[in-house]
């Protein structure tokens, strides 16, 4: 095994490509080291990307924010601008692991772990966040929603790595929220989760919404029907019932040690409802 501190994205991409799949990128390491400990992975090369310029930075861009692949959750939470614009993304990211894990874990790592239960992914999908990918063929931008291919699988080509996430600008009266269900208050993997991002019209009704669910299918799902169910409404009971029904219809979870199909389906609807109400309150406060 070798450990390399990459100095540029080009170097990291080259090492990844050369390794033929035997290299792993190290950002926060909170998934990678656990997998190494259990013997699940034994990489030939570990490529630390945190020293690459820009990786540890949050920069304003076109009214939105670009977040480097090495930025830990805690740093995101300390950034007033991101917190104000995308509070749901920040709360998703801040729910990954403990305070200690927050000092290390990254949104990109959370995305690349390719778990349908990843906490930062549903809010990124709801936010229509875009991942910047660097690879042997240069750079490309891909919506976060299109990155996961299934549990443990990504739509990345050999030698490609994600170097940043872009959270776009948004209208003034807009906000988002993320909720997950876990059996404890902390330290668990989401049993079901929901992120809602919405924009309010002048009259206070919902002009546009995006709803994403986690842990209720092979990958995080953007639920168009759920968004349609609340658009044009003020989240009256009927709209919330329709939102819950649409979410539940979109669920295709599994039974496992963390929850049952029935439970996940039921709770996904409840979480979407509650997240929508929180997002609407947040948007409303931005008068």
């Amino acid at each position: 095994m070798q450990f390399v501190t990459a100095q540029s994205t080009a170097e990291a991409a080259r090492l990844l490509a050369e390794s033929g799949g035997a290299a792993r990128v190290l950002a926060g390491g909170t998934d990678l080291l656990v997998q190494m400990k259990s013997g699940m992975v034994e990489p030939a090369t570990i490529i630390d990307i945190k020293k690459i310029p820009g990786m540890m930075e949050i920069t304003e861009e076109d009214g939105g924010y670009r977040i480097g692949a090495g930025v830990p959750g805690q740093m995101l939470g300390e950034h007033a601008g991101v917190v104000a614009l995308w509070p749901g993304v920040v709360e998703g990211c801040e729910l990954i692991g403990s305070t200690q894990v927050q000092g290390r874990c990254t949104m990109v790592g959370n995305l690349c772990n390719a778990s349908p239960a990843a906490d930062s992914v549903p809010p990124m999908v709801a936010a229509n966040a875009v991942a910047r990918i660097e690879g042997p063929d240069g750079s490309r931008d891909v919506p976060v929603a299109d990155i996961p291919a299934g549990p443990g699988k990504l739509n990345l080509k050999p030698g490609e790595l994600i170097t940043s996430i872009f959270l776009p600008a948004r209208p003034k009266r807009a906000s988002d929220a993320y909720l997950r269900f876990i059996p404890r208050t902390e330290m668990d993997i989401a049993v079901a989760s929901a992120a809602v991002s919405l924009e309010l019209a002048e009259d206070g009704s919902i002009a546009h919404a995006r709803v994403a669910l986690g842990a209720v299918g092979p990958k995080v799902a953007l639920v168009e029907d759920a968004a349609r169910a609340i658009e044009g409404t003020t989240l009256d009971d009927a709209a919330l019932d329709a939102l819950m029904a649409a979410c539940r219809a979109a669920c295709s979870p599994i039974n496992d040690k963390r929850g049952t199909v029935e439970f996940r389906t039921q709770v996904a609807g409840v979480l979407a409802k509650r997240a929508a109400l929180i997002a609407k309150d947040r948007a409303g406060e931005k008068q």
């Binding site: 501190t5 190290l26 630390d48 305070t99 200690q100 894990v101």
Partner: peptide, 27 residues
């Protein structure tokens, strides 16, 4: 635990609280 679930290995690294079991010595 060795997996970041118990916090018994907590240290600070450049001012941030981390589980030292989830950091490589090389880092």
């Amino acid at each position: 635990c060795g997996t970041g679930d118990c916090g018994a290995c907590s240290v600070t690294l450049n001012g941030r609280l981390v589980c030292s079991c989830l950091v490589l010595g090389a880092e």
